[in-house]
Design a protein around this nucleic acid. Structure first.
Lengths: 395, 395
DNA sequence: GACTTCAACGCAAGCGGTTGCGTTGAGTGC
DNA sequence: GCACTCAACGCAACCGCTTGCGTTGAAGTC
């Protein structure tokens, strides 16, 4: 009942293994009566085909690989979730690969770990180098990408450029004239392709509106809350301040909100903020943002991958997922008072705004101590009082 | 160079396939000179052993399954990340299974999908039914659990009871006498085992301190931000209000903070809040919480799983991961003014606090519309002005 | 120098399926 | 009644690797 082989089933049903195989596979050539006998025998034995034997005999693995640069970040977790559902539904196995640091990435692509192992590969937003692309091609299985487009591979993307442009256009429409961007750091180890595209959209909107752009309206940071904080702190130290900030992703926007709250700038009265992604916490903060359905993108591309992995000679496609702007409470018309003037009346609290991310990533010490009263420098909440009243004034 | 077999390597090296196999596997019986010739031949051919053939011949799959009830929630993503690193490092494959709804779960456990497919299984915090446990046992491979303990299976857990107790004790030490809990909904579809344990710790702390407990100090919600909001709203509608809230997880605490901010209760002056988990956003909110290193737990249990999957007759172990309390800015001594009195002086803004999660989970419509000006009822930020000054007063 | 010993290596039998092809036998047309 | 057809099924050869066992030949022993 446990590890029955096809021969056991054949014996019990009084036929040959070939007939069992044909019957179970449904390729025909087996009479209805025999099929039923075989089905019953297999059922009673709790028979399962051995994947290993199946793979060896057929040459197909019934497996797809999903390769992710991050597992815990919202976008990737969401994408993975969507893809998993489709892959499982198709009866395929999902092999998960996490590309941690560059070293692992190196090892991964050089030694063909996936060779003979999968029928298809799904990569998430990695900018691939030429050797990497070559390595993937030589796998000789369909490759699909999410968030990036590569010649010869299928992909699903949102239109980052026009989406970002739309978000910034929203700020323009509200009357903003000095719109800053806090952008992803191009030195990002995983070489995201997204940040530059969103910046292009930002620039396009400014250009179309005839508004100023340039280095003094740009700041960079990691694609995280802390990165957003650092970029915003940087921005607030400039000579002339913007009246609105476009964050390339919601996490960065959260960081911006926190810094703004800490220095006493009201949102949106003193500064508008718009994010990108519609992260689950975005509605929590009332963040105006560009929404995309990442799980759906995972489903779309996984569906395509499954199709091509199963041999239907599907040509590479480029899928586009829709986005839409969600206007919430962090954007509004600019006031005449400049942020600089507002800040002038307060103490410059910006200095202490260094991230405590380093501390948090260390392992928990003092496992059983009592109330160590750990109070990190950043232990101050975000948001501010004015924000809470925004809705009433507007509504 | 692409799909070389062991025979190709053997021919090139002028030996038999057996020697190639032995050499590559390092089992001895091959001279140094021959080994080197074989290595060179394999190298030049880009040879990789066929996993399918290897599995069929050896009977071991070189694969472990990781089964998750959620992929996108912080805890599970973190756990998966930790486990993945160890599994990959051990040279095993990681098959990912997501147990979506109950139906999928049913199908999953009944038909032995994993039979003959994996050398080990890692399950994350699911309360298993007896048939499910039986099904897992009949797989006849090591099974490891994270977050739950089951007889005969290895597991890694934090001590939820004592950790929760410590968190509540912290509130007691600050002088709180009416401490409420916002707890996970026991009707949770995935049957988490965690909420009741944390509640037990809460009750133990109250009991030890001789403080009141009971239904009027308890409210329930989902293990999410929205669940925390709903539970808090519920709590605030009681006759007598607490001076502190223990949230069973940080997400619920975030929800509590938002509701408190909206109704104008200052944290921690009017209400202390303590969470559990040290979610990445916890430091953002300055949330006092119990920290646990989930990725490390993933690594611990995965390491054990790998060991037992590789045949070392390791006995089931019960691993305990440490936790520690992190005191930040959301807890403080209670003031004499009761929350009730404070609320009496304000308009009851609690009514509109229904979650907008339903809307968010729907697919993005209006893909190309311009500025739909969607302003959900909840579009107000959390936190409040007073919070920001806590540090100065305390420090 | 004959005999033992043992490292080094090849042979061949699996592992559990799939599948091309050959065989069988009942049903058909004449 | 006989050749023919074709559905139904079995045979056996793979798929690519591992591994027990037998063989070989050089080194060591007395």
């Amino acid at each position: 009942m446990e590890k029955a082989t096809i021969k056991d089933v054949a014996d019990l049903a009084g036929v040959s293994p070939s007939s069992v195989s044909r019957s179970l596979r449904g390729v025909g050539g087996v009479s209805a009566a025999t099929t039923e006998r075989i089905r019953a025998a297999a059922e009673s034995l709790g028979y399962t085909v051995s994947p290993a034997a199946y793979r060896l005999a057929t040459g197909r693995t019934g497996t797809v690989a999903v390769v992710m640069p991050y597992l815990t970040r919202w976008f990737f977790a969401e994408l993975l979730g969507g893809a998993e559902a489709v892959v499982r539904e198709a009866g395929l196995d999902l092999l998960l690969y996490h590309l941690g640091d560059t070293e692992i990435r190196q090892r991964y692509f050089s030694s063909g770990i996936l060779r003979k192992r999968v029928d298809g590969v799904l990569l998430a937003t990695l900018a691939l180098s030429d050797p990497e692309i070559h390595a993937l091609r030589s796998l000789d299985v369909p490759v699909c990408m999410a968030g990036t487009e590569v010649d010869g591979f299928s992909s699903v993307c949102i239109d980052d450029v026009s989406s970002a442009r739309r978000a910034v256009q929203h700020l323009v429409n509200l009357g903003h004239e000095r719109i800053a961007i806090i952008a992803g750091d191009p030195r990002e180890p995983m070489h995201f392709t997204v940040p530059p595209r969103r910046r292009d959209g930002y620039l396009a909107a400014l250009k179309a509106a005839g508004l100023p752009a340039g280095p003094d309206l740009e700041a960079q940071g990691a694609f995280t809350v802390e990165g957003g904080e650092e970029a915003t702190v940087d921005l607030l130290a400039r000579d002339v301040l913007p009246t609105a900030i476009f964050a390339e992703c919601d996490e960065m926007a959260f960081g911006a909100l926190r810094v703004l709250g800490r220095v006493g700038l009201r949102v949106p009265e003193d500064m508008s903020v718009v994010g990108f992604d519609n992260h689950p916490m975005a509605s929590y903060f009332g963040l105006t943002t560009v929404a995309q359905d990442v799980a759906e993108q995972g489903r779309m591309i996984a569906w395509h991958l499954v199709r091509s992995a199963q041999g239907n000679g599907a040509k590479p496609v480029r899928l586009r997922a829709p986005t839409h702007l969600i206007v919430r409470a962090t954007t509004g018309a600019p006031t005449r008072r400049t942020a600089r003037a507002i800040l002038a009346g307060r103490q410059p609290a910006v200095a202490g705004a260094k991230s405590d991310s380093a501390r948090r990533s260390s392992r928990p010490a003092r496992a059983n101590g009592h109330d160590p009263l750990t109070r990190p420098p950043m232990a101050r909440p975000a948001g501010n009082k004015r924000l809470a009243t925004t809705k009433e004034k507007k509504g």
